[in-house]
Design a protein around this nucleic acid. Sequence first.
DNA 1: CCCCCCCC
Length: 606
Amino acid sequence: MAKNNYNLSEGALQIIMKGGDVHQPVMQVLGSKKINSGSSDKERYRILLSDGKNSISFAMLTTQINDKVGCGGISTFSVIKIDRYITSVINNTGKGDTRVLLILDMNVIVPGEEVGQKIGFPTVLTDTGSNDQTPASNGNASGYGSSTTANTVAAKTSTANGSVSFNINGVNLSDQLTHPISSLSPYHNKWVIKARVTNKSAVRTWSNSRGEGKLFSVDLLDESGEIRLTGFKEAVDKFYDYIQVDKVYYISKCQLKPANKQFSALKNDYEMTMTLDTLIQECTEDEKSVPTIKYDFVTIDQIQNFEVNTIIDVVGVARTVSELQTFQARSTGKELKKKEIMLVDHTKTSVALTLWGTQAENFDGSNCPVLVIKGARVGEFGGGKNISTLSSSNMKINPEMTDAYRLRGWYDGEGNKLDYSNISAKSGAGNFSTPWLSFKEVQDQGLGNAEKGDYYQVMGTILLIRSENAIYKACPTEECNKKVIDLENGMYRCEKCNREFPNFKYRLLASMNVGDWSGNQWVSMFSSEVEKVIGMTSQEVGEQIEQNPESMVSITEKANFKQFIMKCRAKMETYNTPRQAKIPMVLMINPISNASVSPKSNMLED
DNA sequence: CCCCCCCC
């Protein structure tokens, strides 16, 4: 056996086969074998390779260098310099991961005939699948700020399918060596995805009993699916500026966990979190093979049919835009900013779109831009539907898209002259037709037996509001107005939601005596209408009585002898015996000057 | 580890 007089890179295989990098290693070929692959009519060679210290049998010459090999392959004992190579972890044996060395380019330094024998005493290298350092293991921890090309990263990625069919220069290599997003799961951690960033959130901070920090998240898309990736704290510093919407990245080494469907509309059972090991590298080659954001547009006239909280994609023209409005959130006291846009489309329908925060501040509605929104949320107000952007929404202004061009052309041609049917117009409780009845007639007719109660309206004068218990602390959750229990420790418990909150909202619930021409009647009135009666918000009333509990009397007295058209509901108690009429509920009040509600027209309808 | 997305 010859000594190593050929400068074999002893120990190189140990490094390479653990995912490390050795520059242009010199190796000896101890044997080669032609492989016929079913899918390719080209020949490939599997070789037994030695660095003088170790040997492996999982080395393969790629077909691009067949011309350097000749028809007989590389002669046994040849010493070669490997100029370009990649390793790839395959798992198609059922026995765990195996790393293969794929030689992309090499040159024979000394032909086998000249060497004539095995150099050194190489032992077979085992345990080649673990300690994965891929991708970009050549000193670039993240790819961020590095000069490494995307290609380099691709050439060091792992593969799940064990395919070893390559194109030259790795142009399509990366595709074959990356994993589809849909294949990601917590049960595999060796993967690289090549994905387009379709959305990036702002950086948000949080502070709660478990701690505080900052985070952001991106939505990733490839041809197989989509997934959300969130970065916390130091990951924000590391990656937030680097990652840009619409660009394609190689991403590996993130932590996978089941997605909480409650908080994400993305179609994936999992979501990912960046870790200290996470690698993200922009892909600048062949990135067009990764699909761009997909939309599932609904037309504006369809929005009224969606349930509240549905997430939709919509494209429309911003026909009008409100001024920036600033106000305080009732529940949190936080200052909020919004702009309301009238969005229209070719269905001749308009919907109110609300933008929030900096997006609202920065929005320029001049020239009626076309807006394309992914992930807007359907809301409801006063019986009409509206839409709103969330932090997870993605809004593009005048994007270069067919749907946007088409709408632009339509609007500039005829749309700008049209009248639109507004699905955000207030309707519902205040709009259904109700007969004019006096309190005496309601009583005499014994109304309230209908399943949902009987509705009527009266011209009523408020004679007295009871100031006792007219205001209460309610659950801060939207749509839940249940009175909360003050736990006297800064927390408030809602029995209905079975939750404790650090805050509450004030609600008014007034019991009042109302007179009409036939007599008088005690009625109840909810917060929204009491606010109109007394000209104060519940929050304002709450703050005032916190200062001076006695002031409730003077607040309620202001309502005395005010006159309104009151839409009321008569309903029977269903569980109390004997069966008796409940206190009527005033659902909505309107000033008597409201010309749209004339007794005569309503009587004719009924 | 967030998960808030608000208002009339």
